[in-house]
């Protein structure tokens, strides 16, 4: 009896090659699905660069320090977009269509869905921060050491993780029709209040204090540390704050997921 069951199980096992192919295809098609959707990909890819061009380069013509500062903060702004929209709005819409029901009924591992979206959000982030860096170097005269560029890229791309988790929680809670609007209502104020659009020191004191409670502020401060323009707190404080937010968003996602399953 036990033997039969084991044979039976083996019959329906998938080997590593098959599983690798599954994750590869899930990611590939998630990427194609996203890039082919101009309503998402155009704003996600172009807005951070256009904003940076106006506020970081043209308005601060010749002020390389300001351009370096805003490069760091607009990088954070750019990374938040795909994280919140691909996970948040994208997931909410597919959930609303009933499409996720089909996926759940299939033997697709739930992790394939999460990992593919995570990889796609990170690829988008990478494209955005590389475009920003090209603009910064060629048009604003920003000059950094290689290690600074590499560290910045790592901070930006890995720093997108808490926002992916926030997006995941939103994607599991929001209704499909209202999801894009709600995500924007969270994304844009969060970016402004965290000092991503204009330096935090230009905001009034109470807003500067309030920014301490927002995750993008801490990611921006980490990035600013690389170019020595941060507000002077220790790195570990920012990393700890981001980790705490990641845990909170993860727990919220779990709660939302469990609620849905019932």
């Amino acid at each position: 009896m036990l033997n039969t069951n084991q044979n039976l199980n083996a019959l329906h096992d998938m080997d590593y090659v098959q599983l690798a192919r599954l994750y590869w295809l899930e990611t590939k098609f998630e990427w194609l699905k996203t890039i082919r959707n101009p309503a998402f990909s155009l704003p996600a890819l172009s807005f951070p660069v256009i904003f940076y061009l106006f506020f970081g380069v043209l308005f601060n013509h010749g002020n390389v320090q300001a351009s370096s500062y805003l490069l760091c903060t607009y990088g954070v702004f750019g990374v938040m977009g795909p994280a919140l929209f691909s996970f948040g709005a994208g997931l909410a819409i597919e959930r609303g269509q009933g499409w996720l029901d089909i996926k759940e009924a299939s033997p697709m591992p739930a992790s394939a869905q999460l990992i593919s979206r995570l990889v796609v959000a990170m690829l988008f982030s990478l494209i955005i921060v590389i475009s920003l860096s090209v603009v910064a170097v060629t048009m604003a005269g920003v000059q950094l050491q290689l290690w600074q560029w590499l560290t910045l890229m790592a901070i930006w791309v890995l720093g997108g993780l808490p926002f992916c988790l926030l997006g995941l929680a939103l994607g599991l809670v929001l209704k499909a029709q209202s999801a894009p609007a709600v995500v924007n209502l969270i994304y844009l104020p969060l970016a402004f209040l965290s000092g991503l659009w204009m330096p935090i020191s230009m905001l009034p004191g109470f807003m500067q204090n309030f920014a301490q409670f927002l995750p993008p502020y801490h990611l921006a401060q980490l990035a600013l540390k690389v170019v020595d323009l941060d507000a002077g707190q220790d790195s570990w404080q920012h990393i700890l704050a981001l980790l705490i937010y990641a845990v909170i968003f993860f727990v919220l996602s779990r709660l939302a997921f469990n609620k849905k399953a019932r």
Binding site: L25, F29, L32, K33, E94, G98, A105
Partner: peptide, 27 residues
């Protein structure tokens, strides 16, 4: 296999791609 009622599918994938993806889910 399950064919459930669905309002819509992800619109920016081709039929071929949808099927290739679902084939990869099965041994």
């Amino acid at each position: 296999g399950a064919m459930l009622q669905v309002a819509n599918l992800p619109e920016t994938l081709k039929i071929k791609e949808h099927i290739q993806l679902f084939q990869s889910y099965y041994p």
